[in-house]
């Protein structure tokens, strides 16, 4: 019996070692993280892939690669390479012509679509974006970066390190796309007659958290609330797409992509 166990363990160890070797043999994408290569991949994507997958990979006839529910991100580098090179005939995706280098660049761009914005090239002007953020666009009235700015909106100190460029862009162009929970404006009348105005951060039938314009938190039990009026929309303005030019939105995305929290 003991011999059997020993052989079983030895066999399992061999299989595991083989598995590790197989993983090591798989090709790694040399272009991942290389901003120039990703930019070249973007150019190739726009020329050959955006027709189906949409500009910025946001979907069309083909799947959304930027923030949709597709499974490509679980593929290994090599499998992503093969998928692009050989296509998916059953799904109507044709093979992609070109050198291996071009395919690796395309694959790196596809990975970067979901990677933190700070790790992918941005076309916009971050200097203009900074001016807009702290000026005309008024982002700083609600959002903060490293301690400066408003307190009502999410802190953007690590926007570029924690969000992809697509997610940042969508939040600017279509803030309601992720729902308004946590950012609804509310007017509350308490049973003692006082009233409170602010943003509903979090609520259920028993308690709620309201943040007022000064940023102060009001942690209330619903037994103290007489009535409240809750807006359906997020307090984030929904008109940036019409207020700002495409280049200005690109600039804001580029500026936010640079925000990665840690400085040292």
């Amino acid at each position: 019996m003991r011999t059997l166990i020993v052989w079983t363990i030895a066999g399992a160890a061999l299989l595991m070692a083989q598995h590790v070797q197989d993983e090591d043999k798989k090709k790694r994408n040399p272009a991942i993280g290389n901003l120039a290569a990703i930019a070249a991949g973007e150019k190739a994507f726009n020329a050959g892939c955006a027709g189906c997958h949409g500009t910025g990979g946001t979907g069309g006839r083909g799947p959304n690669l930027a923030n949709g529910r597709v499974m490509w991100h679980t593929l290994s580098d090599e499998a992503t390479f093969n998928r692009i090179k050989e296509g998916v005939p059953s799904g109507g995706m044709p093979p992609t012509p070109g050198s291996d280098e071009k395919i690796w660049q395309l694959a790196a761009y596809v990975v970067a679509l979901r990677a933190p914005a700070s790790e992918s090239p941005q076309s916009g002007d971050p200097v203009l974006g900074k001016t807009l953020f702290w000026g005309k666009a008024g982002c700083n009235e609600c959002h903060s970066i490293l301690g400066k700015g408003g307190k009502i909106g999410p802190d953007l100190s690590d926007a570029g390190g924690s969000r992809s460029a697509t997610v940042i862009r969508l939040a600017i162009e279509d803030p309601g796309s992720n729902g308004s929970k946590g950012f609804e404006k509310a007017h509350i009348v308490l049973k003692d007659g006082r009233t409170l105005d602010g943003v509903l951060k979090n609520r259920n039938n028993f308690s709620l958290q309201l943040q007022d314009a000064k940023g102060d938190l009001h942690l209330l039990l619903m037994t103290s609330v007489k009535e409240m009026t809750v807006a359906r929309n997020s307090v984030m303005p929904a008109n940036y797409k019409s207020r700002l030019t495409a280049a200005e939105i690109d600039a804001l995305v580029a500026y936010l992509a640079q925000q990665t929290g840690r400085k040292s």
Binding site: S144, L146, G147, K151, D155, Q211, R262, K263
Partner: peptide, 18 residues
């Protein structure tokens, strides 16, 4: 070992120093 300062009310990052 990054000492990190956050805003008590919002959790917003103020600074980090290694």
């Amino acid at each position: 070992c990054f000492l990190t300062a956050l805003n008590q009310k919002t959790g917003a990052l103020l600074w980090q120093r290694q």
